[in-house]
Amino acid sequence: MKPILEVERVRKTFGGVVANNDITLEVPEGKIVGLIGPNGSGKTTLFNSIVGYHVIDGGSVRFDGREISELRVPRIARRGLLRTFQQTRIYGKMTCLENMLISVPQRDQTWLSILRKPPAADESKAEDLLEFVGLYAKRRLLAGELSFGQQKLLEFGMALMNEPRMLLLDEPTAGINPTLINGLMHRLRRVNEELAITLFVIEHNMSVIMSLAEYIYCLAHGELLAQGRPDEIQADQRVIDAYLGAH
C-alpha cells in the first residue's frame, strides 16, 4: 500500500539540543501506526515538525505525495492532516455543540461562506459524532466545564468532524479513566475502519498500542531506535533497555 505520510531525514534542534535527528519513517494509508519512546525522546517534537508547528532544520515531510514541510499549520490541516494535543485543547467558553460546529472542514470555505449560518446538516452530524464519543447529553454545557477525560473525547470528536484523511493522536489514553480505555480503543478502530482515517498514535500505555497498532516506531534520544510489528518491538532488547534506562 502506498504511504500517505513520508518523513525523511527530519532534523530539529532547539538551541543546542537535538530533539529529532535524521528521522525517517512512513505511514501507509488506512493503517494504524504507533510511535513510542521514553519521555523526552522527541515524539511530540516530531508531531510538531510534521504538522508545521515549527520550521524543521532539515529533511522533508510529504503528505499524500506532496511536500508539506514549508507549509504552516492551518494549510496542512486543510489538506486533511490533523493532530490532537497531549494537553487537550478545546474551546473552553463555547458549548460542546459549538466546539463541534466550528470544527467542520475548512477546505472549501470562502469569504462569503464564513458569514453564513451553519447548515442543518452540520448540526445533525455534530450531534451524531457527539453521541459517538458519548457526550451527547452534555452538548449544551460549556466545554471548559467538562472533566479532562471528557474534554479528550470532545477533542477527538472535533477531529472527526473535520473529516481528516489522517489523524495524529498525541497520547489519546493519557488521563482517561482506565475503565473507559477499552471503549476508546474500540472507537479508534471503528474510525480507522469505517471512516478510513489513517491513524498515527503516540502512546505510553504499552498494552493499548500493542493491540491497536499494526506497526510501531520507537524513538529514543531524538533518534529512531527501532521499528517493526508489535511482537517484534516487544521482543527488541534495545527498546526494553531504552525504557528501563529512562526510568
Binding site: V51, V73, A77, R83, F85, I90, Y91, I102, S103, Q106
Partner: peptide, 14 residues
C-alpha cells in the same frame, strides 16, 4: 469565539 478560546487550536483545525 474559537480564536478567543484557543487560537493555536483553531489554527491546528485549519
Amino acid at each position: 469565539n474559537a480564536i478567543r478560546d484557543d487560537e493555536d487550536k483553531a489554527e491546528a483545525m485549519g
